[in-house]
Amino acid sequence: MAYSSLNKRVVFIKFRMIQTENLTYQYKKRGAILSFPNIALEKGKNLLILGESGIGKTTLLHLLAGLLKPVTGNVFIDNTDLNALKSNKLDKFRGKNIGLVFQKKHAIVSLNVFNNLKARLLFSNALVHNKKIEIVLKQLGLSELKKNKISELSEGQLQRLGIALSVIHNPKVLLADEPTSSLDDKNCKIVIKLLKNQAKQTNANLIVITHDHRIKSFFQNSITL
């Protein structure tokens, strides 16, 4: 926690891991302008962002990840302004500091489960520790499947692999896009608990963007678009 002295008084300033200011986005020059509420999250805090289909939830997630450039506004992660980074530096920053859980599975089909996680570490320029991979696989109930091909996994196993791929490099921010929308109540709870536990393990901020109101009770902080 940073502080400064002013007129013999100490003013404490809470450090914010994620902060957005006046974000807007427009897909076409004459299309509708999407405006988003400001976000300010301290390190380790979680946030649920709710909204109906077509309201711009995935757009907001892509802005937070630096996959899209806003028309106006800024996204700060760990005091880094994503808009100020050139594409190659932004790619490196994202690969190291952000974990993404997409609706569609993004595993490499030519690699088995274990080697998918090794590849993710290499992509992040992180050291490859086989023991670390084994630990994450165990935490997510995938140890017995580490040599399996991606085509041999069930939907639930693919979902857990997606979480493993998003946390294996110890990101500072974990972004999940509709992680429970296609799940029944039982598996919905399992996936949210897995996401929260993995974020806690690495002291990462978890932001879940969804239209699924079933998971609202799992979050202290939420906003509706």
Rank of each mutant, 00 (worst) to 15 (best):
A2E: 03
S4F: 15
S5A: 14
L6W: 06
N7Y: 08
K8T: 11
R9S: 13
V10Q: 08
V11Q: 11
F12Y: 13
F12G: 02
I13T: 05
I13S: 03
I13Y: 03
F15Q: 01
I18G: 03
T20M: 00
Y25R: 11
Y25M: 10
K29I: 02
K29F: 05
K29V: 04
I33P: 09
I33S: 14
A40Q: 04
E42V: 00
K45W: 01
I49M: 13
G51A: 02
S53V: 00
S53Q: 03
K57S: 07
L60T: 10
L63Q: 02
L63A: 02
A65H: 07
N74R: 00
N74E: 02
N79T: 12
T80W: 06
L82I: 04
L82E: 05
A84N: 04
K89W: 01
L90Q: 13
G95R: 08
G95Q: 06
K96T: 05
K96A: 10
N97E: 08
K104G: 02
A107W: 09
V109P: 14
V109A: 15
V109W: 12
L111T: 07
L117T: 07
F123A: 15
S124P: 03
V136N: 02
K138Y: 01
G141V: 08
G141H: 11
S143D: 09
S143P: 04
S143Q: 09
S143G: 05
K146N: 13
K147N: 15
K147C: 08
I150G: 10
E155C: 03
Q159F: 05
R160F: 06
L161C: 07
I163T: 11
L165F: 10
I168D: 06
I168M: 02
D177Q: 00
E178A: 03
P179H: 07
L183I: 03
D184F: 07
D184E: 13
D185A: 15
L194W: 12
L195P: 08
Q198P: 06
K200R: 08
K200M: 06
N205M: 00
I207V: 06
V208C: 14
K216H: 07
K216C: 07
S217F: 08
S222G: 12
I223K: 12
I223H: 13
L225S: 12
L225T: 06
